[in-house]
Nucleic acid binder design. Structure first.
Lengths: 250, 250
DNA sequence: CCCCTCCAAGTTGTAGGACAACTTCGGTAT
DNA sequence: ATACCGAAGTTGTCCTACAACTTGGAGGGG
């Protein structure tokens, strides 16, 4: 039938549409959705596709299906900062209702550290593009971000053109849409340059997020390190299982 | 057709089976799986159910489907500690190849703090069951865990019977299988009692995980706070999107 | 020999219908 | 009032067919 939005797979478009309707409040938490046959008819798609879309949202924890009963909206209010979905610091800040900003932005070509080199698949010491900036929320410095790219992916000049915007958007314009990433979280304290950039005393508690982003074909597009002010915002994760990952649990 | 394992929905059983075969190495990272029709026949299920199972694993980041080409195993090596799936500290420790242990275990009824009360849905100051213990990995103290329950869910006596085991198992025996949870992560430093229990100097960096676990019908079953030693193990998260959650990204 | 085009086979994506398994709720008999 | 039963509605699974897409190889032209 209709095939208006983008050309991602139909079930993803359907899932997005349903997600929007849920967050818009059309279906309140705890409500039961219309039956699949009816909903599929009203959307002009087959029940198969609709079910695939619902499965995505169920996996996200937004919906919950009960055999013989119906499909319900989860009671859980939307996570303030769901680390498994929200991408980009500015969207996290915006999600809290604060005005995102950028200061102290510098962009250079630098030699890759061992860690960065391993992530980007280059040799240690090779030149890579690096974009460093401090993100502000309502004028307050909250995150110190450094992002690294291979030179052939985004030259320093192109990286500098990002200018306060999202580097994901710049990559997407070059046909490199980030599909997923793996983030590692460690506690930390502000020292030296980081403390100065964030304008906090040495020893201030930080949450450091080291992340490697890849495209749909698993090629690494971006590596980044974010130093978050501990009290700036909460970082949450929706955890599934157990029961989805094998029966260990001694 | 056959319906051997458990009686969770078929697609979840299929997903578990496939996941096991992948982690067992039957399909190496980058490999292409057999076609859906063939795989469905060999498993004795319909292609619809198989597709639903594959969709789950794709959402987990384990598989990747490409229209017209095939279904591939993700290159990403299995995350050491995927916070969005691994449940329970002992399984995290076991996943690292270390021997999990428990020391300093105490179980009492105590008055609920404001935070605990809000999570469990009781009034502040009401009595709740509390289980506190230190988890060890290979003999080293790595996590200080406190878990709270409503009295009618798990009485202190029943909670004490857990004795070094998983509280999830104890809950499951009472028909309360934990279906999902929401974890909030903050950096922290060891102070006072926590430092003493973990046998580290004051000021040692910690990663604190506050978590609320719920059953399939969204009723809260358990709240917990874990103080992780910063250098004990890495905590990682697989992040999907962007493109799955609406087009913000200024 | 190299390169380009085109086609055929194989793959995943979607459609649509049928039935099974399950829940819910109201009616009915006890 | 209570227990039982059944009809209606819902999600779960199966089946077949076709559309959309990718891949690789055959074949021809340079």
């Amino acid at each position: 039938m209709m095939k208006s939005p983008g050309r991602r797979s139909l079930r993803h478009s359907l899932a997005d549409g349903l997600r929007d309707r849920v967050v818009a409040g059309e279906f309140a938490p705890g409500d039961r959705l219309p039956g699949e046959p009816e909903l599929a008819r009203s959307l002009g798609v087959s029940r198969s596709s609709l079910r695939a879309a619902i499965a995505l949202l169920e996996e996200d924890g937004l919906l919950r299906r009960m055999h013989g009963s119906g499909t319900y909206v989860t009671d859980r209010p939307l996570l303030r900062n769901d680390l498994s979905r929200n991408f980009g610091v500015s969207s996290m800040i915006a999600a809290m209702g604060l005005e995102p900003g950028t200061v102290d932005e510098t962009c250079v070509a630098e030699e890759a550290s061992a860690e960065v080199a391993a992530a980007l698949g280059v040799a240690e010491g090779d030149a890579v593009s690096a974009l460093r900036r401090v993100r502000t929320a309502g004028g307050r410095r909250v995150v110190d971000v450094t992002e690294w790219c291979r030179l052939d992916v985004l030259a320093p000049r192109a990286m500098a053109a990002v200018a306060g915007g999202s580097i994901y958007a710049a990559l997407a314009e070059r046909g490199l849409t980030v599909h997923h990433g793996v983030a590692t979280i460690t506690p930390d304290v502000a020292m030296g340059e980081v403390a100065r950039r964030l304008a906090v005393p040495r020893g201030t508690l930080l949450l450091t997020v080291w992340q490697v982003d890849s495209t749909a074909d698993d090629s690494v597009a971006l590596a980044s390190r974010e130093h978050h002010l501990a009290d700036a915002f909460e970082i949450s994760v929706y955890r599934r299982g157990p029961g989805g990952g094998g029966e260990d649990e001694r």
